[in-house]
Write a protein that binds this DNA or RNA. Structure first.
Lengths: 336, 336
DNA sequence: TTGAAAGCGCTAACAA
DNA sequence: TTGTTAGCGCTTTCAA
């Protein structure tokens, strides 16, 4: 079943069928109808490889998913799913690359013209893949922001602003000493962009407002969370506000706080940076800055499509954080 | 940069370069060396689309990942990663399809020759995608086992045997009344194969051994787990052994049991069906049947490759469960 | 508005 | 052991 079969069936030339399919030139309504009907009757599906060869477009994009220590898989998959969904909406498929494939994987899928472009998640401040991405003739979009964005297209939540927003919210409620319960140590050690930027925003805003801060990296295991929280509140008894930037730690953290006999938000206010589903499923529901995975993934795809179509220069898109007050942050308790 | 450039550089014909690359005919060592060197010097990478068109092989397989309610994402991703890794070991890439694409997605990637074969995860007893898979000329492998396996190639842990092994272990320790804390209700409602088979094995073995059983589907949220466990132990005070077949419920379950003032394993024995990392990270470490995601994913890929090479008939591969005793199951407590 | 035909870069059948 | 060459099925230029 080839394009010429459709052409014969519809009484037109192969090129006409091709143009009906691609929309790259105008076709009379009658012809278009006949062709589409033939396609339908014959169940024609164009050969992807032939298309890719002739058009130099595979209609596939590569997605590098981060599966390394400290990563919270469900959130990573929210991004991935939104990339796949958005790509499909724009007639593209997604090739799945793992971190393990590394830079050679990027070179391979680009060099063989297997994909038209690349989306990379979980970008580090000084990411080893960036020189490779720069060297490719294929466009790419980073989900995350490295130190040097020259010539790169990046998109992410504005984590610095998110960190600031959390501090501002707590400060406005009167809190004078707050702590950030952050990502696992390994995430900071490899200098993941979003984690570092959150800390920077957190500290800067606090400094400007004269609020005292502590930052506690935190492993995800409930026991580790409990230990971190207990240690923190023990060493810094003046802390009345917590910012949590660690999805799997959210629930254990609330348990731990309760275990210490402290009520949220009466004794301790908690603000999270997390996807809405995580923030709303706790008791009490968390005041939070939402992590808009869907929007970021969708934006990454449209930026990539724009680059494929040669639209516009590289750009860094930072989505503004939205802090939604729920039930976990309240005015600082009166001093005993 | 094309194959003819390499051929010229090496002083051979394009077909020789092609054969050096594919290994499909013997090449003199001297020629092979020259060709490989030219490839290296020129940095040649064959065009994937051209290859696919000429050879009728894309060297890509599709993977349908399950992202629906009740699914535990990290475990699903363990399977996915192992599929990607194994595929790469065999020179194949992986195209990511979501459940949402449905059967039309399967038809599309097969019909356009975008992929050579398909791996489907999270198969239901009467899975809607099976007629479609049967109708395709492309081979497929199911991770999971439907009711009618005629003409299908399937691989999975033998969950029925796993359910049996858990019961057998507890029964051997003297337990006479046990409960299965299972997957979320939605998983049973859509009749997911592995969940149903576990229940079947659990019940059958218990029946044969004269052990009383209860089955409690269980949502993943900690509060839901606590409620389920509390309700269960309240209604069935004779229960001294628990089988947990629900990864995210494992930790909350242990917490809930402790919260009821019961010790594991002194008062209550617990056996899990879960990946080793989940079973070993709890306190106490859980006696468990491991969920060998890596092995299942790898096996799925090699079965698919065999089908691509026309080896052998369809087959159902059930990996035998391995129960590893750890610290969470002990002899039934003496009656008070 | 449509058609004819020249490739796209590779593989594999055939020939030597 | 190697070379020649005819496709693979599509897109797109050129021509009408």
């Amino acid at each position: 079943m080839r394009i010429s079969d459709v052409a014969r069936h519809a009484g037109v030339s192969p090129s006409t069928v091709s143009y009906v399919l691609s929309g790259k030139r105008s076709i009379s309504p009658a012809t278009r109808r006949r062709v589409l009907e033939s396609i339908d009757v014959l169940g024609y599906q164009p050969h992807a490889g032939a298309r890719a060869l002739a058009s130099n477009r595979s209609n596939v994009i590569a997605l590098v998913v981060p599966l390394r220590p400290g990563i919270h898989v469900p959130v990573a998959m929210q991004f991935a799913v939104s990339v796949v969904t958005s790509a499909r909406d724009r007639e593209h498929d997604v090739l799945l690359l793992t971190q393990a494939e590394g830079e050679s994987g990027l070179r391979r899928v680009a060099g063989t013209s297997m994909v038209d472009g690349i989306i990379v998640m979980d970008v580090e401040v000084d990411d080893a893949r960036i020189p490779t991405l720069r060297s490719l003739s294929h466009p790419s979009v980073l989900i995350g922001v490295p130190a040097d964005t020259e010539g790169l297209t990046c998109v992410d939540l504005d984590f610095e602003a998110a960190g600031r927003a959390c501090v501002a919210h707590l400060a406005a409620l009167g809190h004078r000493e707050i702590a950030l319960v952050g990502q696992p140590p390994s995430v900071y050690e490899r200098r993941t962009g979003f984690a570092e930027r959150t800390v920077a925003g957190f500290r800067a805003e606090a400094h400007e407002r004269g609020v005292e801060t502590t930052v506690v990296p935190c492993d995800a295991a409930p026991a580790a969370v409990a230990a971190s929280v207990t240690g923190l509140l023990d060493e810094r008894p003046g802390v009345t506000g917590l910012v949590v930037h660690n999805e799997p730690a959210v629930a254990p953290l609330l348990d731990a706080v309760r275990g210490l006999g402290r009520e949220v938000p009466a004794d301790l206010s908690v603000v999270a940076i997390a996807p809405d589903d995580i923030a709303t499923e706790t008791s009490p529901p968390l005041t939070s800055v939402s992590l808009p995975a869907e929007e970021v993934g969708g934006r990454a795809v449209s930026l990539l499509m724009d680059k494929l179509d040669d639209f516009g220069p590289p750009e860094v898109t930072l989505l503004p954080p939205r802090l939604v007050p729920r039930a976990s942050a309240a005015a600082r308790p009166a001093l005993p």
